[in-house]
Simulated scan of single mutants.
Amino acid sequence: MYAAVLVQRLGHLISFHFDAYPIFPEFSSGSREGIWWLPQSTSDGYVVISNFAARMVKGRLIFTADEGRYATELALAPHQTQRISIRDAVQRAGFKGIQGGIRVEAEADVASVYVAEVLFDESAGFSAIMKVFERDRNLLQQSYTLRAPLIGLATPDPMLAYPTGTILHPNILVRNAADTPVNAAVTVKWRSPKTVGRFPLKLVPLAPEETRLLDLTTLQKDGLPADANWANVAITYSGRPGDLVAIANSYDTTTRYGIQSPFTDSLSFMWKGGMWHVDPQHNTLITTGNAGKKDATVALTLFYGENGIYELPEKTLAPGEQMEVGSLIRNQIPDKKGRVLPPDAMEGSYEIKDLKDTQIGYLYEGKVITDKTFGHATYGCAECCMYGGVG
C-alpha cells in the first residue's frame, strides 16, 4: 500500500508533498538527521516532529552550524505533533550562515518519532521539502553510496516549462552527522539532449557536524556542455547510514523556479506506489537507474483509474544508464500491447521492475511532477518492495 499527502491551497504558489512511511521497530537506537537551509533573508521553514507512540517521548532538537550547536528539550505527549520555526531557532542560536544541520534525538521509541522539514518563502513563492534521514547507531560501518537521479542543471529541461532565459544554480548540501571526519567520493554524471558524460568532484574530508555547499555550476568551467539539462550524482563514503546526509537543490536567483532531488542509499529489484500526474497544468518525469555491475532488463507499468494499465516495452539498462519515460506519457505513445493512455487519465501510480534479478536488484528511481502554472517541480518517492533495499 502507498499513501501520500499533498498540502496546498489551490491557486497559490506554496505546496508540500509528504510520502507516508512505515514504522520499523528495529530502529531502536539512533537519531533523525537533516539539513536546514535559508537561501534568502525572507526564507523560513519548520521542523515538524510527531510522536506516533501511545506514551510520552522525550528527546532533544539540535541545530548545528559553523558557530556551534543549539539544543532544545522535547517532550511529546502521545500522538502529539510540535512545529518549530527554523528562522527563530537560527536567530536564537546566533548563527550567521545560510545552512547547517538538524538532529532529533529520542530517549526511547525513536522509531515512533517522525520528523519532517519544510521550507518556504511567501514573497518569492518558494517551497521545498528537506528530506530527513535515519541514523541507526546499531548498524555496522561499511561502504554506502547515496544517489540522486534528477538534479536540474543550469539549462532547464523544456519539460519544466520555465520562462525563457531561466538559469538554475545547482548545488548539493552535504552534512557529516558523525562524530569523526568523513571522506567521500563524489561522481557527477550529466546528460544533454545529444550526449552524456561524467566528472569526479574533489572533496576534502568533512569535519564532524560540518555542513558544506557544493556548487555544481563550477562544472561549466570543466567542460560541462551548456545544453546539459540533468545530472545524477553518487556520493560514496564509509560509515553508517545517516552518517552522511545530502540534498540537491537547483533554483534560480529568486528561488521562484526550481527543483529538488532527494538522495537515497536504497536499491531494489522493484519500486512501486509512486504517483504520476499529467494534464494541461502538470507533467511528470520518471527516471530509473541501474547501479549494478551487469545489465538490467527493466519494465515500467503505469496504473490509472480502477483497472487501467499501460505497459512500456522492456528496456535493457547498462550499469549507470537511466531511462526517462516522461515523453512517452506526454505524447500518449502506444504501449507494448498497443494501448494508449486515454485523454481523461490524468494521474495514477507506477511500478518499476528488474525482470532479470528478482532477488535483490540494483535499481534506483526518481520522479518529479512539474506545475507549469507556478514553476514548481515536486519530487516524490516510491517504495522498494519484497526483499528490501541495499546500499
Rank of each mutant, 00 (worst) to 15 (best):
A291C: 01
F374C: 06
L244A: 11
Q8H: 05
N176E: 06
D88Q: 13
E67K: 15
A161C: 00
T81D: 02
V298N: 14
S261A: 04
G326W: 02
L244G: 13
F374S: 05
H277P: 02
A75V: 13
T145L: 15
P181Q: 05
H282M: 12
R137F: 05
P158A: 12
P319G: 07
V390W: 02
K372H: 04
F63G: 07
S28G: 07
T187F: 07
Y21Q: 01
A54K: 11
P39C: 14
F16N: 09
K337Y: 12
S123M: 03
P342R: 01
A291Y: 01
G326P: 02
Y251P: 13
R330F: 10
P181S: 06
L160P: 08
G361M: 12
G320N: 04
S28R: 09
A108Y: 03
F303I: 15
P342H: 02
V204I: 09
S143K: 12
E117W: 10
I35D: 00
L355W: 08
Y257L: 07
G101E: 06
Q322K: 14
L201K: 02
F263P: 13
F374N: 06
I23P: 07
R32H: 08
K353R: 08
V340N: 00
R191C: 04
G361S: 11
M130R: 03
Y114H: 14
Q40A: 06
Y257C: 02
S31G: 14
A77G: 13
L76G: 14
L267S: 05
G258V: 06
T42I: 14
S31K: 12
A108L: 01
S192V: 03
K315M: 04
E117R: 07
V182T: 09
A185W: 13
N232C: 12
G338L: 11
E314L: 12
S31A: 12
S143G: 12
E321V: 04
L302D: 10
M275K: 11
I102H: 05
T370G: 14
M386P: 09
Y257R: 10
G94T: 05
D243W: 04
H169V: 04
V204Q: 15
A246N: 05
A345N: 06
T378F: 14
N176S: 04
R339W: 02
R147F: 01
Y304R: 01
N138D: 03
G97V: 13
F199N: 15
S85K: 07
E122Y: 02
N307D: 15
N229L: 11
H376C: 05
S327T: 06
N290G: 10
N249G: 15
S261L: 08
T287M: 13
A111C: 11
K315Q: 02
F199D: 11
D279I: 07
S192P: 06
D66C: 07
R240I: 08
K194W: 15
W271S: 00
W37Y: 13
T253Q: 05
D371V: 13
L355N: 10
N283P: 06
T287H: 12
F95G: 11
R330G: 10
H79M: 06
W190F: 08
G100R: 05
V182K: 09
G45K: 00
E73I: 13
